[in-house]
Protein backbone atom coordinates (compact mmCIF):
# COMPACT_ATOMS: atom_id res chain seq x y z
CA UNK A 1 0.00 0.00 0.00
CA UNK A 2 0.98 3.61 -0.51
CA UNK A 3 3.03 4.73 2.52
CA UNK A 4 1.12 7.94 3.13
CA UNK A 5 -2.17 6.08 2.80
CA UNK A 6 -0.91 3.53 5.30
CA UNK A 7 0.05 6.24 7.78
CA UNK A 8 -3.25 8.10 7.47
CA UNK A 9 -5.22 4.87 7.78
CA UNK A 10 -3.31 3.85 10.91
CA UNK A 11 -3.67 7.29 12.50
CA UNK A 12 -7.40 7.21 11.80
CA UNK A 13 -7.75 3.71 13.25
CA UNK A 14 -5.70 4.71 16.30
CA UNK A 15 -7.88 7.76 16.90
CA UNK A 16 -11.22 6.00 16.42
CA UNK A 17 -10.36 2.87 18.38
CA UNK A 18 -8.64 4.88 21.12
CA UNK A 19 -11.65 7.17 21.52
CA UNK A 20 -14.12 4.31 21.65
CA UNK A 21 -11.93 2.49 24.19
CA UNK A 22 -11.91 5.60 26.38
CA UNK A 23 -15.70 5.67 26.11
CA UNK A 24 -15.86 1.99 26.96
CA UNK A 25 -13.68 2.59 29.99
CA UNK A 26 -16.03 5.30 31.29
CA UNK A 27 -19.02 3.07 30.64
CA UNK A 28 -17.54 0.13 32.56
CA UNK A 29 -16.48 2.40 35.42
CA UNK A 30 -19.99 3.83 35.58
CA UNK A 31 -21.63 0.41 35.65
CA UNK A 32 -19.31 -0.75 38.44
CA UNK A 33 -20.26 2.36 40.40
CA UNK A 34 -23.96 1.63 39.65
CA UNK A 35 -24.46 4.66 37.41
CA UNK A 36 -25.88 4.42 33.89
CA UNK A 37 -22.83 6.25 32.47
CA UNK A 38 -22.38 8.05 29.15
CA UNK A 39 -22.73 6.27 25.80
CA UNK A 40 -19.60 4.47 24.63
CA UNK A 41 -19.05 6.91 21.77
CA UNK A 42 -19.21 9.90 24.13
CA UNK A 43 -15.46 10.53 24.13
CA UNK A 44 -15.42 10.50 20.34
CA UNK A 45 -18.40 12.86 20.19
CA UNK A 46 -16.76 15.20 22.69
CA UNK A 47 -13.62 15.34 20.59
CA UNK A 48 -15.62 16.37 17.52
CA UNK A 49 -17.85 18.69 19.50
CA UNK A 50 -14.94 20.66 20.95
CA UNK A 51 -13.80 21.51 17.42
CA UNK A 52 -16.88 23.63 16.81
CA UNK A 53 -17.17 25.15 20.29
CA UNK A 54 -16.40 28.78 20.91
CA UNK A 55 -12.72 29.09 21.74
CA UNK A 56 -10.52 31.85 23.06
CA UNK A 57 -6.94 32.04 24.20
CA UNK A 58 -6.12 33.31 27.68
CA UNK A 59 -4.46 36.72 27.90
CA UNK A 60 -1.88 35.34 30.31
CA UNK A 61 -0.78 32.46 28.04
CA UNK A 62 2.73 32.12 26.62
CA UNK A 63 2.05 32.50 22.91
CA UNK A 64 2.71 30.72 20.58
CA UNK A 65 3.82 27.93 22.90
CA UNK A 66 0.33 27.58 24.31
CA UNK A 67 -0.99 26.49 20.89
CA UNK A 68 2.16 24.84 19.56
CA UNK A 69 2.36 22.45 22.48
CA UNK A 70 -0.94 20.86 21.48
CA UNK A 71 0.43 20.33 17.97
CA UNK A 72 3.57 18.85 19.55
CA UNK A 73 1.50 16.20 21.34
CA UNK A 74 -0.11 15.26 18.04
CA UNK A 75 3.27 15.17 16.24
CA UNK A 76 4.83 12.78 18.74
CA UNK A 77 1.91 10.36 18.70
CA UNK A 78 1.71 10.40 14.90
CA UNK A 79 5.43 9.58 15.10
CA UNK A 80 4.53 6.72 17.45
CA UNK A 81 2.04 5.40 14.90
CA UNK A 82 4.74 5.51 12.23
CA UNK A 83 7.26 3.74 14.46
CA UNK A 84 4.66 1.23 15.62
CA UNK A 85 2.08 -0.25 13.26
CA UNK A 86 3.51 1.30 10.06
CA UNK A 87 7.22 0.42 10.17
CA UNK A 88 7.61 -1.70 13.35
CA UNK A 89 10.74 0.24 14.23
CA UNK A 90 12.76 0.67 17.42
CA UNK A 91 11.26 0.48 20.91
CA UNK A 92 13.83 3.03 22.10
CA UNK A 93 12.01 5.57 19.98
CA UNK A 94 8.90 4.93 22.05
CA UNK A 95 10.95 5.71 25.12
CA UNK A 96 11.87 9.06 23.58
CA UNK A 97 8.26 9.68 22.55
CA UNK A 98 7.05 8.92 26.05
CA UNK A 99 9.67 11.27 27.53
CA UNK A 100 8.45 14.04 25.24
CA UNK A 101 4.87 13.23 26.23
CA UNK A 102 5.82 14.06 29.82
CA UNK A 103 7.34 17.32 28.60
CA UNK A 104 4.14 18.19 26.76
CA UNK A 105 2.18 17.59 29.97
CA UNK A 106 4.63 19.83 31.77
CA UNK A 107 4.40 22.66 29.31
CA UNK A 108 0.71 22.47 28.47
CA UNK A 109 0.20 23.03 32.17
CA UNK A 110 2.64 25.85 32.67
CA UNK A 111 2.18 27.78 29.41
CA UNK A 112 -1.32 28.97 30.26
CA UNK A 113 -0.43 30.87 33.42
CA UNK A 114 -3.22 29.17 35.35
CA UNK A 115 -2.31 28.03 38.88
CA UNK A 116 -4.05 24.68 38.28
CA UNK A 117 -2.01 24.12 35.15
CA UNK A 118 1.13 25.11 37.00
CA UNK A 119 0.45 22.59 39.76
CA UNK A 120 -0.13 19.93 37.15
CA UNK A 121 3.14 20.95 35.52
CA UNK A 122 5.00 20.47 38.78
CA UNK A 123 3.31 17.08 39.18
CA UNK A 124 4.28 16.13 35.62
CA UNK A 125 7.94 16.69 36.46
CA UNK A 126 7.46 14.83 39.68
CA UNK A 127 5.73 11.83 38.10
CA UNK A 128 8.28 11.71 35.28
CA UNK A 129 10.77 10.65 37.93
CA UNK A 130 8.55 7.61 38.54
CA UNK A 131 7.27 6.81 35.07
CA UNK A 132 10.58 6.95 33.27
CA UNK A 133 11.96 4.11 35.47
CA UNK A 134 8.81 2.17 34.62
CA UNK A 135 9.62 2.63 30.98
CA UNK A 136 12.96 0.96 31.70
CA UNK A 137 10.96 -2.20 31.07
CA UNK A 138 12.27 -1.79 27.52
CA UNK A 139 15.75 -2.67 28.72
CA UNK A 140 14.50 -5.90 30.24
CA UNK A 141 12.89 -6.75 26.91
CA UNK A 142 16.20 -5.96 25.25
CA UNK A 143 18.12 -8.18 27.66
CA UNK A 144 15.69 -11.00 26.99
CA UNK A 145 15.34 -10.77 23.22
CA UNK A 146 18.62 -9.13 22.20
CA UNK A 147 16.93 -6.53 20.05
CA UNK A 148 14.98 -3.30 20.32
CA UNK A 149 13.29 -3.58 16.92
CA UNK A 150 9.61 -4.44 17.24
CA UNK A 151 9.45 -6.74 14.20
CA UNK A 152 12.40 -8.76 15.57
CA UNK A 153 10.73 -9.00 18.98
CA UNK A 154 7.61 -10.38 17.29
CA UNK A 155 9.76 -12.93 15.46
CA UNK A 156 11.47 -13.83 18.74
CA UNK A 157 8.11 -14.50 20.34
CA UNK A 158 6.93 -16.67 17.47
CA UNK A 159 9.95 -18.90 18.16
CA UNK A 160 10.22 -18.75 21.96
CA UNK A 161 6.65 -18.09 23.08
CA UNK A 162 5.06 -14.91 24.41
CA UNK A 163 7.18 -12.60 26.57
CA UNK A 164 4.19 -12.19 28.86
CA UNK A 165 4.94 -15.68 30.18
CA UNK A 166 8.74 -15.43 30.31
CA UNK A 167 9.08 -11.92 31.81
CA UNK A 168 5.75 -11.35 33.61
CA UNK A 169 7.18 -8.71 35.96
CA UNK A 170 8.16 -6.55 32.99
CA UNK A 171 4.63 -6.91 31.64
CA UNK A 172 3.30 -5.85 35.03
CA UNK A 173 5.51 -2.75 34.97
CA UNK A 174 4.27 -1.81 31.54
CA UNK A 175 0.70 -2.38 32.67
CA UNK A 176 1.24 0.04 35.56
CA UNK A 177 2.50 2.56 33.03
CA UNK A 178 -0.62 2.08 30.91
CA UNK A 179 -2.74 2.35 34.02
CA UNK A 180 -1.11 5.63 35.00
CA UNK A 181 -1.95 7.11 31.59
CA UNK A 182 -5.65 6.27 31.78
CA UNK A 183 -8.13 8.90 32.98
CA UNK A 184 -9.38 8.57 36.59
CA UNK A 185 -6.56 6.16 37.40
CA UNK A 186 -5.01 6.10 40.87
CA UNK A 187 -1.77 7.42 39.35
CA UNK A 188 -3.30 10.15 37.15
CA UNK A 189 -1.97 12.92 39.37
CA UNK A 190 -1.39 15.32 36.49
CA UNK A 191 -5.11 15.22 35.72
CA UNK A 192 -6.37 14.93 39.29
CA UNK A 193 -9.76 16.55 39.84
CA UNK A 194 -8.31 18.43 42.82
CA UNK A 195 -6.60 20.65 40.23
CA UNK A 196 -9.70 20.92 37.98
CA UNK A 197 -8.44 19.21 34.80
CA UNK A 198 -4.74 19.48 35.47
CA UNK A 199 -2.67 20.58 32.53
CA UNK A 200 -5.74 20.72 30.29
CA UNK A 201 -7.57 23.21 32.48
CA UNK A 202 -6.88 26.22 30.27
CA UNK A 203 -6.91 24.32 27.00
CA UNK A 204 -10.60 24.52 26.25
CA UNK A 205 -12.56 24.59 23.01
CA UNK A 206 -10.77 23.36 19.95
CA UNK A 207 -7.42 22.95 21.72
CA UNK A 208 -9.06 20.52 24.14
CA UNK A 209 -10.54 18.60 21.23
CA UNK A 210 -7.10 18.51 19.65
CA UNK A 211 -5.49 17.25 22.87
CA UNK A 212 -8.20 14.58 23.20
CA UNK A 213 -7.51 13.51 19.62
CA UNK A 214 -3.84 12.96 20.44
CA UNK A 215 -4.60 11.28 23.76
CA UNK A 216 -6.84 8.76 22.03
CA UNK A 217 -3.97 7.89 19.70
CA UNK A 218 -1.67 7.68 22.72
CA UNK A 219 -3.99 5.23 24.51
CA UNK A 220 -4.30 3.05 21.41
CA UNK A 221 -0.53 3.08 20.91
CA UNK A 222 0.28 2.15 24.52
CA UNK A 223 -2.10 -0.82 24.31
CA UNK A 224 -0.70 -1.70 20.89
CA UNK A 225 2.86 -1.78 22.23
CA UNK A 226 1.81 -3.90 25.19
CA UNK A 227 0.05 -6.45 22.99
CA UNK A 228 2.78 -6.49 20.33
CA UNK A 229 5.72 -6.67 22.67
CA UNK A 230 4.33 -9.07 25.25
CA UNK A 231 2.07 -11.30 23.17
CA UNK A 232 3.02 -10.59 19.57
CA UNK A 233 1.82 -11.82 16.23
CA UNK A 234 -1.84 -10.93 16.72
CA UNK A 235 -4.27 -10.30 13.86
CA UNK A 236 -6.46 -7.15 13.91
CA UNK A 237 -9.31 -8.97 15.70
CA UNK A 238 -6.84 -10.24 18.29
CA UNK A 239 -5.58 -6.70 18.86
CA UNK A 240 -9.12 -5.43 19.27
CA UNK A 241 -10.03 -8.15 21.78
CA UNK A 242 -6.77 -7.60 23.69
CA UNK A 243 -7.34 -3.85 23.85
CA UNK A 244 -10.91 -4.27 25.07
CA UNK A 245 -9.77 -6.69 27.77
CA UNK A 246 -6.98 -4.40 29.00
CA UNK A 247 -9.30 -1.39 28.93
CA UNK A 248 -11.94 -3.28 30.90
CA UNK A 249 -9.34 -4.34 33.45
CA UNK A 250 -8.05 -0.77 33.76
CA UNK A 251 -11.64 0.45 34.18
CA UNK A 252 -12.19 -2.08 36.97
CA UNK A 253 -9.11 -0.82 38.82
CA UNK A 254 -9.97 2.84 38.25
CA UNK A 255 -13.56 2.40 39.37
CA UNK A 256 -12.63 1.02 42.76
CA UNK A 257 -9.56 3.11 43.64
CA UNK A 258 -9.27 6.75 44.59
CA UNK A 259 -6.70 9.03 42.95
CA UNK A 260 -3.63 8.78 45.15
CA UNK A 261 -1.94 11.92 46.34
CA UNK A 262 1.23 12.80 44.40
CA UNK A 263 3.69 11.42 46.95
CA UNK A 264 1.90 8.10 47.34
CA UNK A 265 1.40 7.78 43.60
CA UNK A 266 5.06 8.38 42.79
CA UNK A 267 6.31 6.17 45.60
CA UNK A 268 3.98 3.32 44.56
CA UNK A 269 5.17 3.57 40.97
CA UNK A 270 8.82 3.73 41.98
CA UNK A 271 8.38 0.71 44.24
CA UNK A 272 6.69 -1.24 41.47
CA UNK A 273 9.43 -0.20 39.04
CA UNK A 274 12.10 -1.32 41.49
CA UNK A 275 10.41 -4.68 42.09
CA UNK A 276 9.92 -5.10 38.36
CA UNK A 277 13.48 -4.29 37.34
CA UNK A 278 15.20 -6.17 40.14
CA UNK A 279 12.87 -9.16 39.92
CA UNK A 280 13.18 -9.41 36.14
CA UNK A 281 16.95 -9.21 36.20
CA UNK A 282 17.11 -11.90 38.87
CA UNK A 283 14.81 -14.17 36.86
CA UNK A 284 16.86 -13.49 33.73
CA UNK A 285 20.08 -14.42 35.52
CA UNK A 286 18.79 -17.70 36.94
Amino acid sequence: MNLMGNIILNVAIAFLVGSVLFGLQRKIMARIQMRPGPPIIQHLLHTFKFFIKESAFPKTAAMPFYIAITAMLCVIWVAAVIVGPVTEGSLLLFFAIYAIHKIVEHNAGSSSGSPYGKLSCVRAVYSAAAEVPLFAVLIIIYLKTGTMIISNIVTFQSQHGALLLSIPLAALMFFVLILSKSPYSPFAITKGKDIVSGYETEHFGLLRGYLMFSESIAWYMLLWIFLTVFIGGLNPVGYLIGMVIITAFVALINAVTPILNPNHSVMTQVTLAFIGIAGSIITLLY
Partner: peptide, 14 residues
Protein backbone atom coordinates in the same frame (compact mmCIF):
# COMPACT_ATOMS: atom_id res chain seq x y z
CA UNK B 1 -1.14 15.71 9.58
CA UNK B 2 -1.06 17.52 12.97
CA UNK B 3 -0.98 20.96 11.34
CA UNK B 4 -3.92 20.19 9.08
CA UNK B 5 -6.03 19.13 12.07
CA UNK B 6 -4.98 22.17 14.11
CA UNK B 7 -5.64 24.63 11.30
CA UNK B 8 -8.93 22.93 10.52
CA UNK B 9 -9.86 23.35 14.17
CA UNK B 10 -8.85 27.02 14.15
CA UNK B 11 -11.12 27.52 11.14
CA UNK B 12 -14.05 25.51 12.45
CA UNK B 13 -14.10 26.86 16.00
CA UNK B 14 -16.79 29.35 16.89
Amino acid sequence: IPLSILSFGLLSMA
